[in-house]
């Protein structure tokens, strides 16, 4: 976990806090519904919650409310550090808390939490497209980090006859993602400033996660090839330096080996 202790915690729901929501109805067999509702709704009273002496103590549910939101926001901070630098720590924390309030993980495996965070940032209207692109690169890096260990395609395997080569369909490596960055997200991720790369391929051929930038028309070719288009058809792109782009994709381990 990153140390966020120095950051101001600004819950987006502060205005609602302790305003006195109606108590959640207590239905038979629905204690968990009521409890779940209470710990995800600041200030919502919950009957039957006491301290050790029998005194009503529903205010203590704040301990759970805080952990749920802050730990999920911390999880996002661990996945999206460059995005946080681009936005500034305070703005990022606000966005992460808002996302944590709005979107709960569907699994306890938190490496997959935040898939929707880049789009959430764009929908907020407060960030430039390159910020969301940077976030997509970071999410793809985490997925690549945890992806299956598969040998990347050895370029020597491509020594096929021209007719076979045209029809060849390559399988992306399990770690590989193609991320368009028309807004300049690659350089924003790398340098903190938007730049001209049109897309990146995120890969992990062995243990290190790689982010390889692509310009047009190579980006278009890579997108088509990684989407499963046969090599000949994918390469039908004006101005493509096929040898050069294919060398980039092979050297970064974008494809899985084939039988």
């Amino acid at each position: 976990m990153p140390d966020n202790g120095a950051l101001p915690f600004q819950p987006v729901y502060a205005a609602d806090h302790r305003r006195g929501h109606p108590a959640a109805p207590a239905r038979n067999g629905a204690e968990a519904d009521a409890f779940a509702d209470a710990v995800t709704t600041p200030g919502r009273p919950l009957a039957g919650i006491v301290d050790g002496t029998g005194r009503p103590a529903a205010d203590r549910l704040d301990v759970y409310r805080n952990t749920i939101v802050a730990s999920l926001a911390d999880a996002l901070a661990a996945t999206f550090p460059a995005t946080a630098r681009l936005m500034g720590e305070d703005d990022f924390r606000g966005a992460a808390v808002a996302f944590a309030v709005a979107v709960k993980p569907r699994s306890p495996v938190l490496s997959r939490y935040g898939a929707g965070f880049p789009d959430f940032l764009i929908r907020s209207g407060h960030v430039a497209p390159y910020v969301a692109e940077c976030a997509r690169i970071e999410y793809a890096r985490v997925q690549a980090f945890h992806a299956a260990d598969v040998a990347p395609l050895d370029p020597g395997r491509l020594g096929l006859a021209p007719g076979q080569l045209d029809r060849l369909v390559l399988t992306p490596h399990p770690a590989t993602s193609f991320i368009p960055t028309p807004g300049g997200g690659y350089c924003a991720w790398r340098d903190g400033q938007p730049g001209i790369a049109r897309a990146v391929v995120v890969t992990r051929p062995r243990m290190d996660v790689l982010v390889s930038p692509l310009m047009e028309p190579g980006a278009r070719f890579a997108r088509r090839l990684l989407a499963g288009m046969p090599l000949g058809e994918a390469a039908a792109v004006d101005g493509l330096d096929l040898t050069k782009v294919l060398a980039v994709l092979l050297s970064c381990g974008a494809f899985a080996t084939f039988p």
Partner: peptide
């Protein structure tokens, strides 16, 4: 309570 989460909770290894 920002820094006072009560783990263990899961956190992604990035």
């Amino acid at each position: 309570r920002t820094a006072m989460l009560h783990p263990p909770f899961a956190s992604p290894i990035a």
